[in-house]
Amino acid sequence: MLRREDVAHVARLARLTLSDEELDLFTDQLAQVLEHASDVAALDLEGVEATAHPFGLVNVVRADEPQPSLDRDEVLAMAPDVEDGRFAVPRILGEDQ
């Protein structure tokens, strides 16, 4: 059964802030979808292969040949904040992965 704290945990993972009302509403709505999906969850599919992709292509590769990159001004023009040719962000708490 989906609990309110599960929804809060998932919201943190997904970097979304939910108000108390949204948390209640989403808990309720997601529980309904999961309830509908319980038919799938309940199936005995031991031994059935998982299919993540509809077609069995393999070894799709490209040659190691340089292609033009984008113009830097055009790239940086998209950015909310830029400094010194780079994308600027507020301080990073925590550490490198």
């Binding site: 199936l43 599919l45 059935v48 998982a50 299919t51 993540a52």
Partner: peptide, 8 residues
Amino acid sequence: QALKVRTQ
């Protein structure tokens, strides 16, 4: 489980 259903 959903990926297995997809196979089926």
